[in-house]
Design a protein around this nucleic acid. Structure first.
Lengths: 197, 197
DNA sequence: GTCTATACTTCGATAGAC
DNA sequence: GTCTATCGAAGTATAGAC
């Protein structure tokens, strides 16, 4: 199986490249087909409409991103160490893979397209849960008294700050980013203990 | 002066409404003119190109937003009180005025348009400075020992978290927002003291 | 499944009358 | 300043041959 080329994959690949390099406005059937080296009519044959292509991009990128974050926070190491792995994924790997750019373009589209928004919200929620679980678990393991509200607040703080960091990073504005990451690392170490304990 | 209708203002007003209700993709010369009740050719006569219209929107909204934030943080009250005023502006007033939606639409456009990005960065920087000045000033006044790195980190944390809060709020996803705001208020009170001191 | 060809709409922008 | 009329390019989508 599989000698046949996967047109859907080719088109989703091309859509990601266009989102990264030129933004959502450039993802049209004609330019998408050209980027994929395929015929324009194939976009409609395989996906129906442009909106369906973007849904496919969201599903694939969302899965990869969620899996990456979950993997970074997995394991038994101290929370600081796992957070650091997660941080490297976000500002190193993720940027290289174009996730932040694709994510932000899709978010903005979702603001005006209810269908896309409904697919995006569960993914935001899964990320939030991943953060909250990591904090709650570490608190329990270390015997640090944290209320559920505090766990929720910290997870939300990290989740929203990451979104803001993504935006600024993509805009080429990084004032305070280094200081913020160092500050968070210090706070995590102070509250939960470091790698050496 | 002033009997003559201000076409530029009418068009910028209309552009803001379109950005809020339908997003950047809907801001075309034809739809913009229709929304403003004007002739399509007037857009080009008064602004030259569509890109120039969006620059005008950015300049006006950016000025209003910066002025609002600066006003919220002005005064001699404890930082918590001023922060609370700022918070109300962001999640009450700002949402009502559509600032977050316009801002996010423009940010995403700016990712792909260097000209817009160069106009956006200084405004991000001014906001960051407003936050940093407020924190640094309060620390000095209260005798709280805060390094410049810590001031910078806190300002960046608040600035990036606000951006994330905006995005999520617009997407209709607000899990943890209430807890985060309460947490931040508690932290500010713990570090700098409350309103009653 | 893939292609060409085409229908139809909408875009930004300009020319020229008023 | 404002209008109508129009150009050429680009958009989505479909029909029908292969």
């Amino acid at each position: 199986m599989g000698v046949r080329p996967d047109r859907k994959k080719q088109l989703v690949d091309a859509a990601e490249r266009l989102l990264i390099t030129e933004g959502a406005a450039a993802v049209t059937t004609r330019r998408l087909a050209a980027e994929a080296g395929l015929n324009q009519a194939l976009v409609h044959y395989h996906f129906g409409s442009m909106a369906d292509v973007l849904v496919a991009v969201l599903d694939r990128v969302g899965d990869q991103y969620a899996a990456g974050v979950a993997a970074a926070f997995a394991g038994e190491e101290p929370l600081v160490a796992r957070w650091r792995r997660h941080r490297d994924l976000l500002i190193g790997d993720a940027r290289a893979r174009g996730w932040p750019k694709i994510w932000l373009e899709l978010c903005t589209l979702a603001l005006n397209q209810p269908a896309l928004r409904e697919r995006l919200a569960p993914r935001l929620d899964a990320l939030r849960s991943t953060f909250a679980d990591a904090v709650r678990g570490e608190a329990a393991r270390r015997g640090v008294p944290l209320s559920e509200d505090e766990v929720c607040a910290v997870a939300t703080l990290w989740g929203t700050a990451v979104e803001g960091l993504f935006v600024e990073q993509l805009l080429g504005y990084e004032r305070g980013h280094r200081e913020l990451l160092a500050f968070l690392e210090a706070r995590l170490t102070a509250v939960f203990g470091g790698a050496g304990e």
